[in-house]
Design a protein around this nucleic acid. Sequence first.
DNA 1: AAACATTCCAACCGCGTTCGG
DNA 2: CCCGAACGCGGTTGGAATGTT
Length: 287
Amino acid sequence: MERPPCCDKVGIKKGPWTPEEDIILVSYIQEHGPGNWKSVPTNTGLMRCSKSCRLRWTNYLRPGIKRGNFTPHEEGIIIHLQSLLGNRWAAIASYLPQRTDNDIKNYWNTHLKKKLTKHQTLTASSSTSTGSHMTSSEPSSTCHAPKASSTSFVEETSQTKSTANPSFCTTTNNAALYASSTENISKLLQGFMNNSGPSFDANSFSVEKKYQTEVIGTDLLINSYCLNHHGIEPLLRFDSDSTISQPVLTEFDEVKPGSLSQLEKWLFDEPSTGAQVDLMDLSTDMF
DNA sequence: AAACATTCCAACCGCGTTCGG
DNA sequence: CCCGAACGCGGTTGGAATGTT
């Protein structure tokens, strides 16, 4: 029996959400909390399928979401985790709670994959006969931990960003990129944390901090330093008051006890120490 | 200024998993 | 245990925004 796609019903609207729809959805969730998506279109009158409502909330309207440019810091985490986990964007997103899996996925596909490919090409052409034995076309499969060389991808990434966008890494300019309608809606959410619905996740973040970003102003070499000397926790702390606590580790817990420590071990053991870890081997070992 | 190309991301689609009756 | 509905995730796409000629 073929089940029709959820959004194929007559009268179900598709396409971009309007500010009015956003307000309706936010108001409803503010009152009832996220979840029970099936009831959302029914109770709100929104001509959207439940799935669409859920996506709109999780990817766009949810408080605490940071939008705009990714910092080199975040890039580094994504590259590292993508190398380890592959395209498990939800798992990667659990380490960057202010970013959605969709956001990370888009950023990977539009920016990081190209950069890695470019970097690979440069590396391959500069090396003599030490060609890669990897067979996958996915950059992720050949992504090794950034090397602390003067021509590293890490530095290239940072320099490119800095040149292309002087405001890179700053807070206010990122905020300026947001659609005004979204800002207005986000304002509606002010105080939401104090008056959240029954099932609202306490891991969410205050709206006041929505546009707060860490001002790092460094390239990923510093991240490497952090990884080497301070462990993963400082990398994941985006707010000075640590409202963002720990990454959600269910993925690892489920897969294999002790996997995290291996992950951390790899994250901490940068190749600059001379002990480069083969990511493919590590991934195989872990999963 | 206009036409065309490219980039980017919000939203959709389909499939696998989970949950409840 | 089985089945259907709901949910969650990753891949893909459409079109708006931006850049280039």
